[in-house]
Amino acid sequence: MVSAAPFGALFGALAVDNGFSVFDAVFMSATVYAGASQMVGLELFGHNVQPWLIILSIFAVNFRHILYSASIARHIRHFSGVQKFFVFFLLVDPQYAETEKRAERGEPVTFAWYLGFGLVIYLPWQLMTLLGAIFGQMIGDPKAIGLDVLLPIYFMGLVLGFRKRDNWLPVVAVSSLASIAAMHFVGSPWHVSIGAIAGIVLAAYLPLSKRHEEPVTLEHEV
């Protein structure tokens, strides 16, 4: 939760740097509420990538949440429909981890506890986005304070975070090379879709691994 705060501010500052208004930045944090995918969204939007690919990418980056919601289902069966809506809306990585830990300790997962813990993450995320966006507006030249280097490094960190997945290295290598080639021969923004599709098609055709229970991984961000 504490480690997520700098990323909220980073998102706000980079969003403004990518042409978002302060309102847009906070609006995205408040509605999407999933840090890594928000960064992906603003980068793709800055490149004028086609909307369907932006939305698919955000969906894909957040795909791990499917595992979380499947896994916490057994703890929240007794909640009402409206309560479940809030449960799923607030289901970020630390929230999932804490819910599982609490259930494991044998303590009841009540709606009051869940909502309380959720707001303690949700509200600071909005506040940090706002502060970062206001700060971002005051920056004249993002290069002079080294802001331009942060987004590619952040994405590199995300790529590394997936390195335990099947066929990670071939997918990364093929997508990287295809995107560079597409950038050169076709141009931006097509390098994103062409590079991504190359890696995805490769993954679909490579031999499937034997184990099929996907391990639920915990990432330390919102």
Binding site: P152, F155, V171, S175, L177, I180, V192, A196, A198, G199
Partner: peptide
Amino acid sequence: AVPAAVLSTLVAP
């Protein structure tokens, strides 16, 4: 493979 594939296209160029 989607996340690593999409994100790689944001890093390599």
